[in-house]
Measured scan of single mutants.
Amino acid sequence: MSIQHFRVALIPFFAAFCLPVFAHPETLVKVKDAEDQLGARVGYIELDLNSGKILESFRPEERFPMMSTFKVLLCGAVLSRVDAGQEQLGRRIHYSQNDLVEYSPVTEKHLTDGMTVRELCSAAITMSDNTAANLLLTTIGGPKELTAFLHNMGDHVTRLDRWEPELNEAIPNDERDTTMPAAMATTLRKLLTGELLTLASRQQLIDWMEADKVAGPLLRSALPAGWFIADKSGASERGSRGIIAALGPDGKPSRIVVIYTTGSQATMDERNRQIAEIGASLIKHW
């Protein structure tokens, strides 16, 4: 067993022997300050990975656009099909120029040879490739089937209704393509630590998230040396920005953090900075 597999395998073990964890309200002060700075709603939740206990939250049951954070859930659904023998990570999918949508930095380079399901999930999570996400959605039956998968997991909140890039419209009070911080955190925890996926698939999912290449300005920018993070960011219209992450010190994840914001007129750089500052406060008061 590799060191990485050993780390994931021990998560349920540590759950039975973990020391108590305590929240620090200073982080919530920073979350509220971020709302003021951005002139927008901010949703935040911090969940103990082992016990599932909510350590701190702000607007945990308000809806926010999922943006590209849905791609982790999508690849979780794909992996569940792999575990059930209904899909193969090595299966090659061919597509055409007509399938390409905006922001497809990986898939646009493989029009001649296609990409495997594994490569598409990697592109969707690590590079947030939109065409990769659409091709993967097709393999499971579309957005409604992803919503059904989540319902079967016990998540009756999170929903995907449209494809890339339309799902990023982020219209106020529109429940399409939205989640709540509490629902997303719970669902992510189930995918990473529960029995829904095999150990190999849980490890694959967290490996893809750990290799995320487009979330550098967010929580990763505040991460001390030696800390672990596996994450997925998202951005969409109407000043929306978000990130879902499993992180912790000593090279292993111990908490789930979900941050969403929407309705801001601030620049992308400012939205990134506010999320990074929330992360810095979280780490300082860990």
Rank of each mutant, 00 (worst) to 15 (best):
E175N: 12
F149A: 06
D99F: 06
P60A: 15
G90E: 14
D174L: 02
T27S: 03
N173G: 15
V82M: 03
T193C: 14
P65V: 02
E277V: 08
R118S: 13
A266G: 08
N152I: 08
G216A: 10
T112A: 14
R238P: 14
A185G: 12
T139Y: 03
S254R: 08
G154E: 05
G39A: 11
R81V: 05
P12K: 12
L74V: 06
E102V: 14
Q88N: 14
E169R: 08
Q86S: 14
Q274G: 07
P165L: 05
P224A: 01
A276S: 10
W163D: 05
Q265T: 15
A246I: 12
H285C: 08
C18T: 15
A170P: 01
N173V: 07
E277D: 09
F149H: 07
V101D: 11
L89P: 05
S96Q: 13
S96E: 15
Q86A: 12
G226V: 01
L28K: 07
E169Y: 08
L167P: 02
I259L: 11
R176S: 07
G141R: 08
I243M: 04
A266Y: 05
E164N: 05
P105R: 03
W208I: 01
M268V: 07
A183L: 03
T179I: 00
L19E: 12
R118W: 15
Q86C: 13
P224K: 02
L146P: 00
P172K: 07
R176H: 02
G76A: 12
D174E: 06
L19C: 15
D99A: 10
A124G: 04
L19M: 12
H156P: 10
R159A: 02
N168S: 07
P253V: 03
T147C: 06
K144Y: 12
L137G: 01
A170V: 13
G234E: 12
V106E: 10
R273S: 09
A23G: 15
Q86N: 14
Q86G: 11
G226P: 01
G90Y: 11
P224R: 01
D48S: 05
I229M: 04
R238S: 14
D269I: 09
E169Q: 14
T261M: 09
S104A: 05
A40E: 10
T178D: 01
Q88H: 13
N168T: 06
D174V: 02
V31L: 12
Q37K: 15
R63C: 04
V78A: 03
E175I: 13
Q204R: 10
D212C: 04
G251C: 07
N98S: 14
G239M: 03
Q204K: 11
W163N: 06
E169P: 05
E87G: 02
E237T: 15
Y95V: 06
L73E: 00
M66V: 09
P65N: 03
K53E: 13
L100C: 03
G90C: 11
T131G: 08
D99W: 07
Q203T: 15
W208C: 13
D113N: 10
H151C: 05
N98E: 14
M153I: 12
G279D: 06
G90D: 13
M67E: 01
A200C: 11
Y95S: 07
L192E: 00
G43D: 00
S281R: 08
S240I: 13
S236V: 15
I3T: 11
L146V: 08
T261H: 07
L10F: 13
G154S: 03
R176N: 05
N173L: 12
F6I: 12
R220E: 01
H5R: 07
A200Y: 14
K190T: 12
V82L: 03
L196M: 12
K252Y: 11
L135S: 04
F6E: 06
V8N: 15
A222Q: 15
I229Y: 01
T262N: 10
H24T: 08
M67T: 09
W163A: 06
Q86D: 11
R220N: 01
Y95F: 14
R241T: 06
F13I: 09
F149G: 01
L89T: 03
D161E: 03
L188G: 01
I125V: 12
V214S: 08
N50A: 15
D155E: 00
Q203N: 15
L55I: 07
A84S: 13
S236E: 02
E277A: 10
K32I: 12
S240G: 15
L192V: 07
A246P: 00
L192W: 05
G85D: 07
L167R: 02
P253M: 15
Q203A: 12
L218E: 02
I93V: 13
P172L: 10
D207H: 11
R91A: 05
D269T: 11
G251F: 05
K144M: 10
E56K: 05
G154W: 12
L188C: 05
I244V: 14
L73C: 05
Q86P: 02
H156A: 08
L111V: 14
D161Q: 02
D212H: 06
S96G: 15
L79M: 11
T178W: 00
G242I: 00
Q88Y: 12
M268F: 05
L28Q: 07
D161G: 02
V42S: 00
L10E: 03
V31I: 13
A34S: 07
Q204L: 13
G43S: 08
F13H: 07
G251W: 05
I244E: 00
A222E: 12
M268N: 06
L19H: 15
R7H: 07
A225G: 12
Q37L: 13
R176A: 06
F149D: 02
D99S: 10
S240A: 15
M127L: 13
E270K: 10
A222I: 14
G194D: 10
P105H: 04
K53D: 14
R202G: 06
L89S: 04
V214E: 04
R238W: 12
F64L: 09
Y44C: 00
I3K: 13
I243V: 10
L74G: 00
N152C: 10
S221Q: 11
P60K: 10
A200P: 13
A211F: 04
A133G: 10
F228R: 02
F17G: 10
M127Y: 11
I11Q: 05
L160A: 07
P65R: 03
T262M: 08
S80C: 10
L49R: 01
A200L: 08
E145G: 14
S2E: 07
M153L: 13
F228I: 03
V82E: 02
L49G: 01
T147A: 03
D269Y: 06
D231Q: 04
D207Y: 06
T198F: 07
W208S: 00
T186R: 13
S254Y: 07
D113R: 11
G216V: 04
I11D: 10
G85W: 04
I45F: 13
L135T: 05
F17S: 09
V31A: 04
I244R: 00
D83E: 08
D231V: 02
W208D: 02
S240E: 07
T198D: 10
P25S: 05
F6V: 07
T139S: 15
H151Q: 13
M268G: 04
P65C: 02
